[in-house]
Amino acid sequence: MSEIDLTLLANKQTALPSLHRQFLEPRAMKSGFLTALTWTIAALGSIPLFSVIYMLIIQGGARLDFEALTALPPAGFEDGGGFGNALVGTLVMVGIGGVISIPVGILAAVYLAVLGPHSKLAKTARFVAKTLTGFPSILAGVFTYAILVITFGYSALAGGVSLAVLMLPTVVLAAEEAMRQVPQKMTDAAYGMGCTRTQVILKVVLPTALPGILTGVMLAVAGAAGESAPLLFTALFSNYYISELMEPTASLSILIYNFSAMPFDNQIELAWAASLVLVLIVLVFNILARLLGRPKY
């Protein structure tokens, strides 16, 4: 019926627009052009990642062996060598950062999510955590320099503290978000059974929110492992394995930074190999975060 009407109308040459898609119409062409442009930009945007990964595998993979992972950094014209001490140093300092920031962060998040979510303190703390995530990481180094390095000198402990400052807001915000996802019914049921708030938190909220909290922790660890700016003048660098916490300590990122500016091929190859290891560490924690963070409910 309607088709007949349309043909009738068309025959009478009434001003009825064509109802078929017209690819050569200016607006359709504009749309097509912009679509092509978007695809191009998206493709261009992913080139750097692939280029970085390619370089890491080709340059870094070529040099990555047991010696590189365990030996001490080579001096100027030496061949061989590795970054074993930097690898250990990075793990130690990220460990210190985690030991400080994870408990404090989770407890702070407990307050923000469960104990007093609408209190003035919680609102301020949330705002502070958000501003701290956007903080330049080097300022964590400057802060630690002011409170620790000036008195005690460069040390692994100072490096760990500066990493803790950076990890704290990430842990807090992620843990709070995870605890908010816990269904109200579950906590209500626990209160109904006569639990104290602490029992509700320890036995219901924290176990239920654990995957989300672990995601935040893993992301914080991944971020801290890749950080270098705060370590520059807190942990400094060292050419030897770490023997105590109060002495200058090597880290992978500072090793890459130092070696990248050296005029020796050996050091530059090692910088690429160290980058590969660093990226692998960061990626492992990122993937863990993803796997753990799959919502259960």
Binding site: P48, G226, A229, Y257, S260, V282, L283
Partner: peptide
């Protein structure tokens, strides 16, 4: 892919930039 870009440490981008 975009999120992985965020995971690459700053120094590694520096090294990539230089070479």
């Amino acid at each position: 892919i975009v999120e992985l870009l965020a995971a690459i440490p700053s120094v590694v981008f520096g090294l990539w930039g230089i070479y």
